[in-house]
Structures are given as C-alpha cells and as structure tokens.
Simulated assay, not measured.
Amino acid sequence: MVVQSLNNVPKEIDVSKLGYAMPASWFKASQQPTVNPVSIAMAEIKTSSGNIERLVSVSGNAWHGENAPKIIAWQGHTYKVIFDDLKKLPNRGNENHAEKRIFEYINSVYNNQGINVKIAVENTSTKSVGMCTGCTSSIQDLSNQQPKLRITMFHGSTKTNP
C-alpha cells in the first residue's frame, strides 16, 4: 500500500473538488456541505481486464433519502454512490465512515481479484488529518483479506469540523 497526501490526488478522485460540486439538495438540512462539512471518500478501481469502476461515499447519514443520488456524473466520469457499511470487516469504531463503506464494498464485490485501487479521503477533523486510526486498521484488514489488492491512498482534512 502506498499512502500520499491529497496534494497528489488524481483529478478523477479529487474529493475536495467534488465536495464543492455536490448540490445541497442531496443532503439533509443539518448536513449541508457548505455549512456542516462531511467527510468524503472516492475510489477508482481498475480490474486486471482494464475495467474501471468509480465510487463515492460520505460519512454518517448525511444523504437526504430520496434526493440522494445513486449515481453521480462528474467531470466526464460516473461514480456509484455507496450508502451502507456492509459490516464484513471488523468494527474498529469507524462504522459509518465514508472510507470504511468503500473498503467494505471492495471487499464484497472484488473478493480475491487482482485489482488496483486508488482511494481518496478528506475528513473534517482538526486533530486526525486523513483517516482515523480505526480506518487505518480497516484498510489493513482489507489488505489482509484481499492479498491481490494494490492500494494507493490519498488523504487529508478540511480541518473544518463543525
């Protein structure tokens, strides 16, 4: 696994830019990203056959039910929205974290496949910039369960925790 700062994130998974592009109607009134920032995770998964799947998730229960998109079209790409934590990886005190939901999805859908994954995480913490210790453990759990997985992580923080 390679870990880098968000300064080096590829444009296809630039969580900062997507965060500003998401309309307020997608979120509950109490979770408007411009007022109450939410943590965002994005992933780009490339299979050995060259197929690419892109994912996005946000923390907690910020999505606004029926207004929440199932697919996001952004910058010429399509992203599947991941809403649920599938609870297949151990709970590290990070249930409902955006990146944990993506780890769970990868673990379930790409079980034991040789894939390359780029994941970007931007949280809102002023203390724990990037992934929390629970999510750091969860990505190690994912790597242990999926030894053919190749991961590049990009993470950082808005440092605007409401």
Rank of each mutant, 00 (worst) to 15 (best):
T158A: 07
H64Q: 15
Q75G: 00
Y110M: 02
P147Y: 12
K46L: 09
G50N: 07
K118S: 13
Y105L: 05
G130D: 02
S48F: 07
Q140A: 13
K28R: 14
D84I: 00
T124Q: 13
V58E: 01
N107A: 12
V35K: 14
E53P: 01
Q31F: 13
E53I: 11
K127T: 08
N67Q: 14
E53W: 09
I115E: 10
H155L: 01
S30N: 12
L6N: 03
K148N: 13
G65V: 01
N7A: 13
M1R: 03
N144I: 11
N144F: 11
I119T: 01
I106Q: 03
S39G: 15
D85V: 01
V117M: 06
A21D: 15
V35A: 03
S138W: 04
V9D: 04
S157Q: 06
R101E: 12
V38P: 00
A120V: 08
G76C: 10
D141N: 03
W63S: 05
V56P: 01
M1H: 08
I151Y: 10
S108W: 11
S137Y: 12
S57D: 02
A98I: 05
H64V: 00
M22A: 11
V2R: 14
N7T: 06
S39M: 05
V81A: 01
F27H: 08
G156H: 05
S16E: 13
G19E: 12
W63N: 09
L86S: 03
V121I: 13
I119A: 01
Y79L: 09
N91A: 10
D14A: 07
G19M: 11
P69H: 04
G134Y: 02
S128A: 09
